[in-house]
Write a protein that binds this DNA or RNA. Structure first.
Length: 573
RNA sequence: GUCCCUGUGGCGCAACUUGGAUAGCGCGGCAGCCCCCUAAGCUGUAGGUUGCAGGUUCAAAUCCUGCCAGGGACGCCA
């Protein structure tokens, strides 16, 4: 809002010098340090045009502008070729506080998504296998994106697309029939399924892999699994029953984790549901000559600049992409979305590029609305050995360990607070603060450190704001308090960062980057901690009312930001 | 080989979309602060030729080209 007015001021002043308001707007920037001002106009480009020293130009401009500055700009000065503008912080504070009191939980929200629908496909664990640390990124990232788009006014639909079919299911069924311990399944279903799975892998003499299956040729055990899978596709009654049982037990395990993580979906479906639809679409494409037939009966698609992709096996069974084709078409029919985002590991990028290209070539124009957000790997360094199952880090173990640590911290500090909220907050923040494309280096030391740049630090800041507000009756404070008494740099910094929240939310949605919100929340917390360290609130004199309102504003904005990250805003800890 | 991603103090990150002033922050190290709204906090200090080399520009961590390093994809696996 200020940019436009400042650009206008400058444009008026420099009339006839061949520089438009629009180009000024583009040049305006935020100074690198807040002491320099709130907005800056670099004069270097003018220096070139008029062949004058930029410092001189800036000085002249500042002098002239100072004479006609409006009341919401408190100071204009020139430094090293920049014209720096200082906003009237008390007016900004007044505006922000008013908006905050009006909008509350809605403060920071936007309207860019009005009348638009967005579908987000995330989490997607494999039936029969436990969720491991790698799944958490899709789950947490997808959930946060959902919240961020919701905040921008989009109609959002979260879909959990379960891996309920494939070779791993065949393996699971074989193991289930041979070695199931019914008691163990009752007591600890997730562990029992994992035990069965690992036992099967031992027989096959391959290593357990949480994401995909090695298809061994002529391996006795692999063949047994393939046979089960075939029986399942034929609709064999007993096999189907076991399959359903495995799905039921697995889902229960997932639901426990989703409950702890506070993540929910609008739709939960299995891949198996879309095999038939996918096959129909492929048959149609074949008929139209858009898909090609291999001599052995396999079907594939070819592209200009991508490797060819098999979409149907020679034995006629569906593969991963067959189901993805079916699912995409079905979802578009069902939701008529403006955008659909797949949140998966970046290693699937080629798969999605092929999927999107293929749909487009086959005449499904909605493929332009599809987007793959690929995120980096979570690395464990040398810490893999610490878990009880060897090479896998189970999500359950991570959550458990972090929550235990949170309990210890609470005990040590003799404070209150929900250990689960703190532990989960720590994990979520540790993952979300990284830009999606980056790998995350997981270390227990860092995950369990609740100090500094961490989830609990944000929660603590929120709790401190709540604590101050608890000791007074904020409703009795006049919202039109005199903000001009807030002249401390720490106060001004706080006002400024509060005012940046709406823009930050919009940015995060445009860039599909929850880490932008995470960074903002951290900076806000840091600024707030600096502030209350330097400025007493309850014991303040004439500043008390204005400071209390600032604290209330921090509480609200931090709460809203944490909500976008899916992190609980704790009131006392 | 082709394509994709990443490279910023010992470690973990930010700033790159939209080029701008002295490259911010956390952990760890060292030195401090609980008479005082919660010490999960705060202050000070040491630590950097932003992987390398060119180019564009008044100005490059940011844009372009090439190279180097790490990771990944290129299955009738998912």
């Amino acid at each position: 809002m200020f940019e436009g007015r400042i650009a206008e001021l400058l444009a008026k002043e420099m009339k006839g010098k061949g520089i438009s308001k629009e180009s000024i707007l583009k040049l305006l920037e935020k100074p690198s340090r807040s002491e320099l001002g709130d907005m800056a106009f670099p004069c270097f480009i003018l220096a070139k045009k008029s062949r004058k020293n930029p410092a001189e130009i800036a000085k002249e401009l500042a002098e002239k502008l100072n004479k006609k500055k409006p009341e919401d700009i408190s100071k204009i000065n020139a430094v090293k070729g920049y014209v720096n503008f200082f906003f009237n912080a008390s007016l900004i504070a007044k505006g922000i506080i008013k908006r905050l009191l009006d909008e509350k939980d809605e403060f920071g929200s936007g309207k860019t998504g009005r009348n638009k629908k967005i579908v987000i496909d995330f989490s997607g664990p494999n039936i029969g296998k436990p969720m491991h640390i790698g799944h958490i990124r899709s789950t947490i990232l997808g959930d946060s994106l959902l919240r961020i788009f919701d905040f921008q006014g989009y109609n959002v639909k979260g879909i959990n697309y379960l891996g309920d079919i494939g070779l791993h299911i065949g393996k699971m069924i074989v193991a289930y029939e041979l070695w199931l311990d019914k008691e163990a399944l009752k007591d600890n279903p997730v562990d029992e399924l994992l035990r069965l799975y690992i036992k099967f892998c031992d027989k096959e003499k391959i290593e357990y892999n949480e994401d995909f299956e090695e298809e061994l040729q002529d391996n006795e055990w692999t063949n047994k699994a393939k046979e089960k899978l075939r029986l399942l596709e034929l609709g064999d009654k007993k096999t189907t029953e076991i399959w359903h049982e495995i799905i039921r037990v697995s889902k229960e395990g997932f639901n426990e984790i989703y409950k702890i993580l506070n993540v929910s979906f609008h739709e939960i479906t299995g891949q198996s549901l879309f095999s038939e639809k996918g096959k129909q679409i492929i048959a149609q494409a074949l008929k139209e000559g858009k898909a090609k037939l291999e001599s052995d009966g396999a079907v594939y698609a070819e592209f200009q600049d991508l490797p060819k992709k098999y979409v149907l096996r020679s034995n006629g069974t569906a593969s991963y992409i067959t189901q993805d084709i079916g699912a995409a078409v079905e979802r578009y029919r069902k939701y008529k979305f403006d955008r659909m985002i797949y949140v998966t590991d970046f290693r699937q990028e080629m798969h999605f590029r092929q999927l999107f290209a293929l749909l487009k070539e086959w005449g499904y124009d909605f493929s332009d609305k599809l987007l793959h957000i690929g995120f980096g790997t979570i690395n464990f360094g040398g810490e893999i050995m610490e878990t009880r199952k060897g090479k896998i880090i189970l999500l359950n173990d991570v959550l458990e360990k972090t929550i235990v640590k949170a309990k210890e911290e609470i005990k040590k500090r003799k404070t209150k607070g929900n250990a689960a909220d703190i532990g989960v907050g720590a994990i979520k923040y540790a993952i979300l603060k990284n830009a999606p494309a980056k790998d995350v280096n997981f270390s227990w030391e860092q995950a369990l450190n609740f100090e500094g740049d961490s989830g609990p630090y944000l929660q603590y800041s929120h709790a401190r704001a709540c604590s101050i507000l608890r000791k007074t009756d904020i409703n009795k404070v006049n919202p039109k308090a005199d903000f001009s008494v807030l002249d401390n740099p720490k106060e001004q910094a706080l006002i400024k960062i509060l005012s940046e929240f709406p823009e930050t939310c919009k940015n995060a949605s445009e860039q599909f980057s929850p880490n932008i919100i995470a960074n903002y929340a951290y900076n806000l917390s840091k600024t707030f901690n600096d502030f209350y360290e330097a400025c007493p609130v309850l014991k303040a004199g004439k500043e008390k009312e204005a400071r209390l309102l600032l604290v209330a504003a921090v509480r609200q904005v931090l709460k809203n930001a944490l909500n976008l990250l899916g992190i609980e805003a704790i009131e006392e800890m």
